[in-house]
Design a protein around this nucleic acid. Structure first.
Length: 121
DNA sequence: TTTCTGACA
DNA sequence: TGTCAGCA
């Protein structure tokens, strides 16, 4: 499995090194360390950070993006998650309470018609 | 040259 | 979150 330095992850995700380290503190990723203490990120770490960046780009607050990431710990498709769970509305995440999975998917698809697709769903 | 931690704004 | 210092 390939590993990436923070500099490589910075280029792949568009996030700053400062942000990447901060999100590690928040528990988003748990990179390995070299003997010298340098971080080594896995493909999965990069994917999670790309998802986070995608959520932030869509207007989610950091708290909402983190919550959304926790709702999908391992690259699970939204369709596979319990319909009962709450999801952040894709069209204006900071203005509304959580909605059900099906409504989330419907709104997301409506939004994706006129919006550019993100890195991740 | 790149990354690390800690700290300030 | 950006940025700087001082290391390894």
């Amino acid at each position: 499995m390939s590993r990436y330095t923070i500099g490589q992850v910075e280029r792949k995700t568009g996030l700053s090194q400062r942000q990447i380290r901060y999100y590690e503190q928040k528990g988003v990723v748990r990179p390995e360390r070299t003997a010298g203490g340098h971080r080594l990120y896995s493909e999965d770490d990069v994917a999670r950070l790309q998802s986070l960046a995608s959520f932030l780009a869509r207007g989610y607050t950091l708290a909402q993006a983190l919550a959304a990431l926790q709702a999908r710990p391992a690259r699970r498709r939204v369709e596979e998650l319990p319909a009962k769970e709450g999801f952040v509305r894709p069209e204006a995440p900071s203005l509304y309470p959580l909605v059900g999975r099906d409504q989330f998917l419907r709104r997301l698809r409506e939004r994706e018609r006129d919006d550019e697709p993100g890195q991740d769903g």
